[in-house]
Design a protein around this nucleic acid. Structure first.
Lengths: 142, 142
DNA sequence: CGAATTGGTCAAGCAGCCTGACCATATAGT
DNA sequence: ACTATATGGTCAGGCTGCTTGACCAATTCG
């Protein structure tokens, strides 16, 4: 179906342009995959196991990804308040700055869409997508 | 933005379910990435270089991917009619069967969306996406 | 209190992609 | 026509991200 192609094209372009926007704002040492991790870490932090589940990878892979972002100063491992085995991964100030940069870049792209479609159409698009994939995986899927 | 998340979720779910559908129809030795290659090969075949450009990878990676699908009987390398250096990669009958299976699986998913949104909304969704990403990359983007 | 479970890391291996080098054919320059 | 350059494709080697398997520390259940 052509709809499938259009959907994949839009998602690919969004990912690509958000990544470009993040890089342009000075965060060049990150890959798109890190963004998906930040999305899970942002609200209140998360454990490695939770992050692994969110990204659909093994704990080891998630742990390795956390190593990277910690080494680059975007997050830190803290003792978990309620479980001495676990560690709570939380964003640092730099991590939050990067998250805000990603939101700005995303808003820019969506703004461009509003100019093409009109705001009402974009809202309709959003609602349709939300109904169609209520809890789909917000992560690299292929 | 929540729209971004919804879009990525929908694209991820589509990719995943199409792949599941293809596997369920008996083509278990393929990855989603192969599907993006088939999309370029399907109409009239393509050279390795064209395929590489379409997938956004190097010629070497594309050549290796072609090796895999040839070894598994989905495609074959033929001499290129107009250029003795080049080879035209074309789908075999098995390759076409797999392509049809993918289209069936995609139609199933979209059919499910029609039940949720109604056919008119799905058409509107399609048109909006087509306007927004007229020539986005139909390939794994992250 | 011992047994089984869960969170996390360490170690080794593999798959997919990249860079660099190379050959064969095609195209352009003179 | 003949060389020079560009293009299509492959081979070889290396790197990165992810996986499986094993293990330790802390928790929970009997």
């Amino acid at each position: 179906m052509a709809l499938s192609a259009a959907l994949l094209a839009a998602a690919g372009e969004l990912t690509q342009r958000v990544h470009e926007g993040v890089v342009a704002r000075g965060f060049a040492d990150l890959r798109p995959a890190h963004g998906f991790a930040f999305a899970r870490l942002a609200p209140d932090g998360a454990t490695v196991t939770e992050l692994a589940a969110h990204l659909g990878v093994t704990k080891q892979a998630a742990s390795q990804l956390v190593d990277e972002v910690v080494r680059r100063g975007y997050a830190e491992r803290r003792p978990h308040p309620g479980d001495a085995r676990a560690r709570l991964i939380v964003l640092t100030e730099r991590g939050w700055a990067c998250t805000r940069a990603a939101e700005e870049a995303a808003a820019e792209v969506v703004g461009g869409w509003c100019e093409v479609l009109g705001e009402a159409q974009v809202m309709a698009l959003w609602e349709s997508l939300a109904k169609v994939a209520p809890c789909g995986p917000v992560r690299p899927a292929w």
